[in-house]
Amino acid sequence: MPFVFLFPAMALLAIFKVFPALFAIYISLFRWDVIQGAFRGLDNYADILWANPTRAEAFWRAMSTTFTYVLITIPLEMGLALVIAYVLFQRLRGRTFYRTAYYLPYVTSTVAAATVFVWIFHPQFGLLNAGLGLVGISGLTWLQEPDGVFQMIGRAVGLDVPGWAAGPSLALVSIAIFSIWHFLGFQIVIFLSGLGNIPEEYYEAARLDGASGRQLFTNITLPLLSPQIFFVFTIATIGVFRAFNEIYVFTFPPLLGGPLDTTRTLNVLVFRTFFQQGQIGLGSALGVILTLLILAFTVIQFRVLERRVVYQ
């Protein structure tokens, strides 16, 4: 009887999730350049990682862009979400309104939101430049700007920042801003539910002992919220690793992953190798590498972080 119930959904998951993954692995073992060619074993992987200089350069560049994107998005997004959730939880007036407002971007589609953000980031009459113009900063080109942000800040204050410390391009930072705006509400909701699970008695007891607001936060809230923090960290990181839609809608046209390839993350490189270069074998191999990376990262996260997480 359970089998009868299980079959439809298992079958669908097998067809649409498991099989394509296996098929992609199969494709990645062949020279599949528009059409299936000779069996190459792991040569596609070798080409991507070191053997073919052009491919290897593109891959390592995309790796570094991906990790940069993770580094600028995740800490900021989580920090903001944590603070906002904490404030909202303190019986703030109009709390429901704020929660609604913060969560709304999350249910908005990337395409619709990007339509508006293209206008916000517009170099000539965008909202952001208009705002910055009031404080005397002008002429930023946001999504078109390949220069590193540290470099730009350095230039503004008269410091010469070397190339290796240029930082992520302003274009990548712009996309990160969008991404943070888009996913913030999701994290806030998770944190709010975690906050709701912390027994009020803990706070009362600590207050009797004379703990300050800051102490309450660091000694009670943070440790007891760590399952949620850990969870959000994992989910958000995987989400950023797989980022595609926002980069697609903001950079294409003219060049997917532009300007100057500074927003070409791994997943964008996969797409490009497939559909702009017609290299299906190499594209599949890249996809497999990205999958392994996500898996490895998830495993490490669980192993390392789980020990530090306090479960109630």
Binding site: R242, S284, G287
Partner: peptide, 9 residues
């Protein structure tokens, strides 16, 4: 697996 990698299959 990211959807992009399984699009062709």
């Amino acid at each position: 697996m990211p959807a992009e990698a399984t699009l062709i299959p």
